[in-house]
Amino acid sequence: MLFQDRTAAGQFLAESLADYANCSDVLVLALPRGGVPVAFEVAKALNVALDVLVVRKLGVPDNQELAMGAIASGGVRVLNQDIVKQFNISDGVIDKITVQEREELERREQLYRGDRPFPDLQARTVILVDDGLATGATIWAAILALRQQRPARIVVAVPVAAPETYQDLIGKVDKIVCSATPSPFYSVGRWYQNFPQTMDEEVRELLAIATENQRSLFLST
């Protein structure tokens, strides 16, 4: 399967999440930045609220696309020990990269949320959305961060995932919804015709539209 872009992928993914439509206790949480356009379409189709959970990949030195781990809101850090050992990455290097990525995480949280508090997740079903899963480091950091907030259920929803990453997540969340698990996988971007970098301004704009849509719905009911 080849998606035209993140918007089309989100629209297609939403069809498999129809059971969650119009449920006031459901919240779609996007992983910025690439997950936001996908999640926006999911939240719009389901008529539920949208927010973000900021996660930062810890890239291997000299190969930033390869994740040796990830950090997330709430002080969560996870490491892929196989990658760390394979590239012989020292604790000092890991800590240095963590500090750098923590600064960027905090910058993005302020940019996307401002003074708006993180939503209360207790007794809610959270649909965690990204544009795809490769190593799974970022999604696992996000899951650990979410567990600290004690939601009722965690659902991971992505258009595409590496088969081994998909299998690894089975049993670690309440449900996984994935449109395609191609093999060989190569990379997330391989399965999109158009896969430009999502910019901060697009994230802010989509979040603002989603918030206004939910406000309008609330006032009309």
Rank of each mutant, 00 (worst) to 15 (best):
D19S: 15
E65G: 11
V26F: 09
V28H: 07
K57W: 05
L31E: 05
A21H: 13
A45S: 14
G34S: 04
F40E: 00
P37G: 02
D62C: 13
L53E: 10
N22Q: 14
P61C: 14
N22K: 15
L27D: 00
A39W: 02
V54A: 08
V55L: 12
L66E: 03
A39K: 02
L46N: 11
V28E: 06
N22H: 14
G59E: 05
V55I: 14
V26K: 09
D62L: 15
V28R: 07
K44L: 00
L17R: 03
A21M: 14
N22V: 07
V36Q: 11
L27F: 02
G35W: 02
V52A: 11
L17D: 09
K44W: 00
D62G: 13
E65Q: 13
L17G: 05
E41A: 11
V28T: 08
D51T: 04
L50V: 06
A21N: 15
A21E: 14
Y20W: 07
M68I: 11
D25A: 07
D19I: 15
V36N: 07
G35I: 04
N63T: 12
A30K: 01
N47H: 13
A45Q: 13
A67Q: 06
L50I: 05
A39Q: 02
D62R: 14
N22G: 09
A39R: 01
L53W: 08
A21L: 13
